[in-house]
Computed example of a mutant assay.
Amino acid sequence: MKKMSKSVAALVTVLMAGVVHAGPPVEVTFKNLGSQRAVLKLSTTNESSTFQIADPKPDQSVDPGAETFARVKRVISPDVNSAQLRYTIGSKTCAFGTIYQMRTLAGGIKKPEWTKSANPSGGATCSATITRTGADYSWAVEFTMK
């Protein structure tokens, strides 16, 4: 019984440490503004890990005029989080990304930074917009494609 109590206490400690070290969550909305179905294509390790840890996960296909939602929270550092997704419509591709990083400036001043990117290929039109940032450094981003 004593060993079981120690094991449970150790597990709780590890889980709490993960919560403490997690970066702020990002809410990702992908909107298909095209006239054909968009298909999720995981080409990089960052895209694959985004999909694996997302809760809920983004849809693997998105009909024209529809959208999908994902929430991503990495348990690496309280000062970093990111999400990367890639969707294709026929030969068009959009690679999307968003990153949060807490920067430490001279004098130990901390400054939060949120970035977003939308990289088109094959004639795609892509956009990425940060739609909200929170006092807890959480943020929301909208990715669109056509």
Rank of each mutant, 00 (worst) to 15 (best):
A83R: 00
V20K: 07
S35I: 04
T13V: 02
G23T: 00
L33V: 07
G90A: 13
S117V: 11
K41Q: 14
S43T: 13
N32L: 06
D59S: 15
P120A: 10
K110T: 05
Y137D: 13
P120Q: 14
T88S: 15
V20A: 14
E142Y: 01
V8R: 14
G107R: 06
G107C: 00
S35V: 09
K146V: 10
R37Y: 10
A95G: 12
T98G: 07
V8Y: 11
A66L: 04
D63P: 00
L42W: 01
S121H: 10
K111L: 10
A17Q: 06
L15I: 07
R74D: 09
D59I: 05
L40Q: 02
F143C: 07
V28M: 02
S91A: 15
E47M: 07
A128T: 01
A70M: 10
P64Q: 09
S82G: 10
T13W: 02
S117P: 04
Q36G: 11
G23D: 01
K31V: 07
N32Q: 11
F96K: 11
G108M: 02
T44Q: 00
T125S: 12
K41V: 14
I99G: 09
L40I: 03
L42H: 01
P64A: 08
K111T: 00
N119I: 10
S138P: 06
K6P: 01
A118E: 10
Q52K: 13
T129Q: 10
K31L: 03
T125P: 03
T29L: 06
A17H: 06
K41W: 03
L11N: 11
V39P: 04
R74K: 11
A118C: 07
V141K: 02
E27I: 03
T29Y: 09
L42T: 02
V62N: 05
A106M: 00
T50E: 05
I130A: 03
Q84T: 15
V141W: 01
M16W: 06
A140W: 01
T93D: 13
V19W: 14
A38T: 01
A17F: 07
S77T: 15
H21A: 11
N119H: 06
V141A: 03
E47S: 05
A95S: 15
V72I: 15
R71L: 04
A106I: 02
A95T: 12
A128H: 01
V28H: 00
A124Y: 02
G34M: 05
W114K: 08
K111Y: 08
E27R: 12
V39C: 06
Q60M: 15
E113H: 00
W114P: 05
D136P: 11
K3V: 03
K6E: 13
